[in-house]
């Protein structure tokens, strides 16, 4: 699925990746997908926890060279 918007949180440390994700997702409509790039060590664990808590769907996390790429579908 193509991402509607993307967020570059590379080089940013906790809690910025999830705080910026939350902010970016506010701008999207339900069902749209946000692509988040980050390289914070806590990113995998935190984005999983964040999605679990907020109910948005984590479509997957891909490891790119030197950073991670998560796709999140906004819940209704």
């Amino acid at each position: 699925m193509n991402a509607t918007a993307s967020l570059d949180a590379r080089g940013k440390s906790c809690p910025l990746p999830i705080v910026l994700t939350a902010k970016a997702l506010r701008e999207l409509n339900a069902g749209e997908v946000l692509l988040v790039r980050a390289n914070d060590l806590a990113f995998v664990s935190d984005i999983e926890a964040w999605c679990k808590k907020t109910g948005h769907e984590l479509l997957g996390i891909v490891s790119e060279s030197g950073f991670l790429e998560a796709r999140i579908r906004k819940a209704a």
Partner: peptide
């Protein structure tokens, strides 16, 4: 503030 902003981002 890390906890506050983090929690707020999680909808708390």
């Amino acid at each position: 503030f890390t906890m506050a902003t983090g929690a707020a981002a999680m909808g708390t």
